[in-house]
Amino acid sequence: MRYVAPTRAAHAFNALTKWLTARGISLMGSRVLAVRGRKSGNVHTTVVNLFTYEGHQYLLAPRGHTQWVRNLRAVGEGELRLGRRSEAFTPFEVADADKTPLIRLYLRKWAWEVGAFFEGLNADSPDADVAAAAPGFPVFRIDPR
């Protein structure tokens, strides 16, 4: 399973983005994801980039199979927060074969922020390259509950 640990700079940027998002200031779709831990049962939060494709909302994990991805798979529900507003959702994991346009859109919007996690892949990479990398990037369609 692919997992890329964040750098100190990424930690600092995420902390600032999370702080702003928790106060109602979204940076290009940022939300605070709250999901119960699969082992502890405690609620864990992290900042994520929410995006829309063909009328559905999605979350993509640019660092791979992170803890929030594993928790979301195990628990089967989460919450997206922006300031005081909170929306519960049910996640549906997208099949690898269907990820190419989603990864491409994500890179178009946020490569400036997370491009280093994509290891040379970019929004204009050939479909075959994006499809080959797809298993390393979990994607969830989210449906409001």
Rank of each mutant, 00 (worst) to 15 (best):
R108S: 13
V130T: 06
A12M: 09
R141Y: 04
W68M: 11
P126I: 08
G78Y: 11
P138T: 03
A131L: 15
A133N: 02
P62W: 03
N71Y: 05
A95T: 06
V69G: 10
E113L: 14
F13A: 13
E93W: 13
F51Q: 03
R104Q: 07
L82R: 11
T100F: 01
A74G: 12
A9L: 01
S26N: 03
T90V: 15
H56A: 14
N122T: 14
D143H: 02
Y3C: 00
A95R: 13
A95S: 07
F140L: 13
T46P: 01
G76F: 05
I103L: 14
V43H: 07
E54H: 05
Y3E: 05
F118Y: 15
W110G: 08
N49V: 01
A116M: 03
A10M: 10
K99V: 10
E113T: 10
R145G: 00
H65F: 14
P91T: 06
A133V: 07
A74V: 12
R8L: 06
P6G: 11
F89L: 03
G78T: 12
N71V: 10
T7S: 15
K39I: 07
Q57R: 13
T7A: 02
R145K: 08
A74T: 12
W110P: 05
A134D: 07
D143Y: 00
Q57E: 14
F118N: 04
L80Q: 14
T90F: 10
F13S: 07
S86F: 00
R36W: 00
W110D: 08
R8M: 02
M1R: 13
A95F: 01
Y3G: 00
V139W: 07
H11K: 08
H44V: 12
N71S: 09
A88K: 12
G115E: 09
F117I: 05
V43Q: 10
P62K: 06
E87K: 02
F117C: 14
L107S: 00
E79N: 08
N122A: 10
F137R: 05
F137Y: 15
W68G: 04
I25Y: 11
A12W: 07
A123F: 11
V75N: 14
A88T: 10
W68H: 13
R85D: 08
G29R: 02
F51W: 04
L27V: 14
G37V: 03
S26K: 03
A5S: 14
T46N: 12
A74N: 13
P62G: 11
R84F: 10
D124K: 11
K99M: 05
E119K: 12
N49S: 15
H65D: 14
A12L: 14
R108D: 11
A128D: 10
G29E: 01
V32H: 04
F89V: 08
L33C: 03
P91M: 05
V4T: 13
G24I: 02
F117L: 15
G41W: 08
H65G: 06
I142D: 02
A123M: 09
I103Y: 06
E54M: 01
E119C: 09
R84I: 07
I25H: 08
V47P: 02
G78H: 10
T17E: 12
A131K: 10
E119W: 02
